[in-house]
Every structure is written in structure tokens, then in C-alpha cells.
Design a protein around this nucleic acid. Structure first.
Lengths: 324, 324
DNA sequence: CTGTTAGCGCTTTCAA
DNA sequence: TTGAAAGCGCTAACAG
């Protein structure tokens, strides 16, 4: 019995002879060790539990793939949870996963209640991706949203745009806040550099196509002046393009449009979207690797703070010089 | 100990007094039963293991969501596997999940080797979605691909198109074969009904944007006559539209284009794509429900054969009457 | 190098 | 209605 265990987990000393015998018998019996029993005995399930806001949103599957690939490398399996961007449901998943228990959690959180989350998680290690919560631990992988937003606005300003409609994300999500901060910072910087005045009309709302469409229509109806639309994500930008088309405004000839995220779709629409690439897959990989490192090394393994990934501007056909 | 178990699993007789006491203690101690230990004792993990070809492909996440939602309803948790459309990797996941063991498997399979798959699965119940394997059990949820293709071609014929370029999928995938069969059947039927002759130029290739683009360009260069392009999926259709644009042909004024799948993107591009809706989410729900029904009922529960879902034509802006 | 033994944390008879 | 006790299938410490 113990020898079988030693052979199959490749641990401890076994004579070649008995190894052979065990392997042969296992082959004949089609024996597969029961992972549940193993987990109970070892105290480790070798399960990682990433929880994402919405798997049908084109951005998150890439993160999930990153997590999955890194996990499989280390012989871990992944249980994926969908929070629907709902704090309640996220909590449900966190509790389910923590009860299993999974060895570690990876969260793209929709919650703002650090205490409640902390309690549900218990003492299991966790790494946050992208969205951070004040008062929560430093284990996190982020992209520099402020820098990404600045890149976009700088690009538009370089093209001569001075009046810009900004389609922001939900005010309570940290990444949306950071992008807005980036827009403001870059506008201020350009003004200081004598390239101003830059006039940015800010709007706020959900990250959806419909929201982008409606806000653009409303801005047009209100005669808000703009020669470019900067959106806080690609889906919003696509909504804006659709709205502009229905009003007979061509992109990029009449109005330039930029997105954020570089979803697959961004390069396929016409005109292809100028946007910011987020290393989504890589973020998943890094988060999983951080988690695994923490699991493998028994020492407390201090964290040096969040890893910050650099965004990159991708210029495509949806932006053009402003008509003077 | 036993009483605690009875209270927390709401099973067996417990006096209100001890129930209270247990609940209160559990609250104070923040006690959460360990699912692994429970699984070992009961022999059921309450885990369902769907395996999909690629989570980053816009179609499959909807199926996964369906599975997940149905599973959660019944208090099951879902472990998602990604096969990368690779039979080897699919087998790896099947084995991992079977060893856990998950209570049941849901497969959108990329394998063609029924025997090998059967062996890896063992005696765990399984339901196939969409793609079927000859010689494999009848538990399956499918969409009627032949009917869907016929709907598309009938629509084009109704609009007066008689020369059509067909962009087919890979010849070895069952769904692609069925769609091609539908196209042929409908063309034959229309000819018989005196609406012919219908001239369909068939091409075959991968399901990608690039493939759609290239095959359309090649057809144009070869002076293949057509007033409409019918594609075996939406991504191909988008490639075709792109190709037509680069040659100065407007859609739908000069050439009509149809897709298949109704991915989110289909309604967002301009012109919005005429395509066939696949009830992806629903397929996931049904598959999970079939599986759960089989798990809950202990009797062998005979299967009446695959469930076949009906596709639906969605007419949008990418098709218009043929110029005579 | 190998076998014996005592759990892992829960469920489930069975007797009280 | 409750508690005692025997596993579920594996691992890990220990003695041989």
C-alpha cells in the first residue's frame, strides 16, 4: 500500500523491482489515484480558484487562460468562478472555493468591502488582478491604467485634437478611476506645455456597448464640441463608432475614436480601433506564478508590492489628424 | 459530531435546541465544512467538469455560462477545462477530472478516438455538446447545422441571389460537414422548385478571419461569379467583408454576406451581419440538466437520444436583394 | 527498501 | 433524538 503510494507519487525510496510490479499492476487495473482522498491526506487540493467578473466579456478569458496555463505547468488544476460583476455572487464563489478548500485564490474583484472579503477568504493566499481594494494586501498584478490613459490622450493631442469626449467606466471600479486620472493628468500636462487649452468632456457609466452608444448620441444632441472620442474600454468605443455612423459622421475623417483593452474584435472592425494593449494573458500567468511561489515556499515570503505591467498604445485606423 | 453533521447537512432528526446550539457555535467559530472531507465520505464531489475547445473563442464562454448557471442552481460547482482543440490535451483534462473524481463530464470534444476517450472517462456520466463522435453514447446536445445552413441559403435565394460563394469550415469537423450538406441540399431543392440554377462555389478552410479574407480575395481574382458570400461562421464572414471593402465592393449593395453563430460582434460591425443564432447558453444549460438528472436519479435512466436545438436565422444589414 | 499504523474531516450506520 | 465508532482512499511517520 505504502509502496504503491511511493511509486505513484514518485517520492521516497523504492526498488526498481517493486516499482515495476506496481506500475504493471496499475496498468492492468487501470488504477487512478483518487485526488479527493489524496487531498484529504495531504491537506492540499492542488486547486487554484480564479474568480473573474464575466467570462463572456472578451477580456477575461485571456487572463483565465494565463492562470490556467501557469497552473497546469505546476500540476495544479483550476476552478473558474464567474462573479457577474456582482459583489454578492463573488462572495459566494469565494466562500465555496475557500471551503473546498482551494490552495489559493486569484481575484478580479467586483467588491469594495475589504473586510467582508478578507473574512470569506480566511487565511488562504490570494492574488488580486487589475482591480485593487484599499486596505487589501499587496499581492497583486496590475496594469498601469493611468499611464495607458495618458498614452491615448497624448496620441490624440499630437494629432491636433483639442476638444475630446471621454467615455469613462463605472466610478466605483479602481481601473476606471485610474484611467480617468490619467486623462486629467495628461490634459493638464499638455496645457502646461503650451499645447492647450485641452477641453475634455467627461462622462461616466457602465462598460457596455449600449452605454457608449447612448452617451455619444447624448453628447451630439447637446452640441458638446469634440473632434475625438476617448473611451475607457473597447466595447464603449465600438458603441461610440456606431452612434457616430448613425449620425452620418465618419470615423476617423470626422471624428477620431480610441478604445482601451485591445480585445480581439478591435483589429477586426472597420476602421480598426486605435487602443491600448493590456497584457491580459501575461497578467494571469504572473498572478498564478506569484500564488504558486507562495504555496511552494513554506516561509512567509514577503511581498514587495504589486507587480505593475506596462500598457502599450496600438495605433490603427480609427484615429486621424484633427481637421483644423 | 454526528449531530453537527445532521444540522449542517439538514438531514436526519435533530431537536430544535441542539440545532440552535450548533448553529450558534458554527457562527462564532466561523465554521465551514471541508468539502474535500465531505466528498471522501459521501463519494460525491458535487463537481461538474465541462471541457471546451477554447475559452477565448467568443462562442464557448456562453456554453460554459449555461453549464455553470445550471450547475449552481443544483448546488454543484464547475471545473472548466480548455482543450485548445487538441485531442491530447483534451485527454489530459478528461483524465484529471475523472481522477478527481468529478461527478460528471461535459464535452465539446476535439477528439475522434471514441475508444480512448471512453477509457479515460471510465464509468463517469458524460454529455456531449455540439460535436459528436461516431460510436459514442447518445447523451448529447446538438444544434441542427444542416437546417441552419439551409435557412441561410434560402434567405439568399429569396433575395434573388443565384451565384454564391460558400466559405466552408474545416472538412474534418462534424458541424462544418453538416453545414456544407445543408447548403448543397437547399441548392438542390431550389433548383428542383424551378428557382435555379443555383451556382454555389464551395471552398474549404479554417474558421479564421484570415482564411475568410484570403479565400474571398482569391475568388475575386479568379473571377468567380457571385453576388453573395455565405460563410460557415461569423469570423469567416467578417474576413470576407474586409476583403470586399479593400476591393471597393460595398456590402450589401454590391455583395451580400452571411455568417453563422451570431457572436456578439455580429451585431456590432457595420453593416450588422445576417447570421444564424446558435442557442449556445441554452445548450450548456440543457447539457448540465441532463447530466444532473442522471446523477440525481439512481436508476439507469435511459436516454432517448440527442437533444437537437433549432437554429434561427437573424436577418440584419449585410444582406440585400441581388441586383438583376 | 518495505510494511504497519494512525490519521486527514467528514458521513453514516447502529445502539443507546 | 443523540453519541460512539467505523470507514471513505490516500499519505506519512515509524519500525523493521
Amino acid at each position: 500500500m505504502a509502496t504503491v503510494c511511493r511509486v505513484l507519487s514518485a517520492r521516497g525510496p523504492v526498488s526498481p523491482a517493486s516499482r515495476e510490479k506496481v506500475l504493471k499492476a496499475a496498468e492492468i487495473l487501470r488504477y487512478r489515484p483518487n485526488s479527493v482522498a489524496r487531498a484529504l491526506a495531504t491537506g492540499s487540493t492542488r486547486l487554484l480558484g480564479p474568480i473573474v467578473p464575466d467570462i463572456t466579456n472578451p477580456f477575461f478569458p485571456h487572463v483565465a487562460r494565463g492562470v490556467e496555463d501557469a497552473a497546469r505547468q505546476a500540476n495544479y488544476t483550476v476552478i473558474l468562478g464567474n462573479s457577474d460583476d456582482d459583489a454578492e455572487q463573488e462572495l459566494h464563489y469565494v466562500r465555496t472555493f475557500a471551503a473546498y478548500p482551494v490552495d489559493g485564490l486569484i481575484l478580479i474583484t467586483s467588491s469594495a468591502d475589504a473586510a467582508q472579503l478578507r473574512q470569506a477568504i480566511g487565511d488562504r493566499p490570494v492574488v488580486l488582478i487589475d482591480r485593487v481594494i484599499p486596505g487589501f494586501e499587496p499581492w497583486a498584478v496590475r496594469t498601469d491604467n493611468e499611464e495607458g490613459a495618458r498614452l491615448v490622450l497624448r496620441h490624440l493631442i499630437d494629432l491636433g485634437h483639442r476638444a475630446i469626449l471621454y467615455l469613462g467606466g463605472p466610478g466605483n471600479i479602481s481601473s476606471a478611476q485610474e484611467r480617468l486620472a490619467g486623462i486629467r493628468a495628461e490634459a493638464a500636462a499638455a496645457t502646461l506645455a503650451g499645447r492647450g487649452p485641452i477641453r475634455v468632456t467627461e462622462t461616466e457609466g457602465s462598460f457596455s456597448f449600449e452605454s457608449g452608444f447612448q452617451r455619444t448620441i447624448m453628447a451630439l444632441d447637446a452640441d458638446v464640441p469634440f473632434t475625438a472620442v476617448a473611451a475607457a474600454n473597447d466595447t464603449l468605443a465600438l458603441g461610440a463608432i456606431q452612434a457616430l455612423y448613425t449620425r452620418g459622421l465618419r470615423v476617423p475623417e470626422a471624428v477620431s475614436v480610441t478604445g482601451y483593452d485591445d480585445i480581439t474584435l478591435a483589429r477586426l472592425v472597420s476602421p480598426p480601433l486605435t487602443t491600448v494593449t493590456q497584457p491580459a494573458y501575461q497578467a494571469g500567468v504572473i498572478a498564478a506564478e506569484q500564488l504558486l511561489a507562495r504555496l511552494e515556499s513554506s516561509d512567509t515570503h514577503e511581498c514587495s508590492g504589486p507587480v505593475v505591467l506596462k500598457p502599450r498604445l496600438v495605433v490603427r485606423g480609427s484615429t486621424a489628424p484633427a481637421r483644423m
